[in-house]
């Protein structure tokens, strides 16, 4: 792996490892939506002469879009909040915000700066709340097709 200029203990390495817990989450979110794709839509598209590509382009993907977006928002939230993986992989070297909170809390940077950690925590909470508001909006849209 090192021959390709890839190092596990860098930003791209963290990305690679995050996929291990992100991928199952995405599968969990999108699979029910796939079940909502009705066979009759595909047949209708084919009856009108649609190719496989145009079926996905104009029917499949647009119907799945809310679920995919919802999954992306959820994955953003979980990656944004993850601490254990990056911390144990890079031992706090990469300055992600959860790791910064941990460092400030442990007094690893400068002692007596725990309030900076609190501030980052509040900021994270605000960003995650916004994410979740969008998630619930998208979710509402997605459930339209799941009946």
């Amino acid at each position: 792996m090192a021959n390709f200029g890839f190092n596990l203990y860098t930003f791209s390495g963290v990305l690679f490892v995050y996929m291990y817990f992100q991928l199952p989450l995405m599968v969990l979110v999108v699979t029910p939506a796939l079940g909502g794709l009705r066979q009759s839509w595909r047949e209708a598209a084919e009856n009108m002469g649609a190719s496989s590509w145009s079926y996905w382009r104009y029917v499949g993907i647009p119907v799945l879009m809310p679920s995919i977006l919802g999954g992306m928002l959820l994955l953003f939230g979980s990656a944004f909040a993850a601490y254990a993986t990056a911390e144990s992989l890079t031992l706090g070297v990469i300055a992600l915000s959860p790791i910064q909170i941990g460092n400030f809390l442990n007094g690893n940077v400068i002692a007596g700066q725990t309030h900076v950690g609190y501030a980052i925590a509040l900021g994270m909470l605000v960003i995650l709340s916004i994410t979740m508001i969008f998630y619930s909006l998208v979710r509402k849209r997605a459930s339209k097709w799941l009946r």
Binding site: G77, A81, A82, Y83, P98, I101, L105, L128, S129, M132
Partner: peptide
């Protein structure tokens, strides 16, 4: 929704 890292900050405080 609330990440454990934020929760523990509150708890420790």
């Amino acid at each position: 929704v609330i990440p454990p890292i934020v929760l523990i900050v509150g708890v420790l405080g």
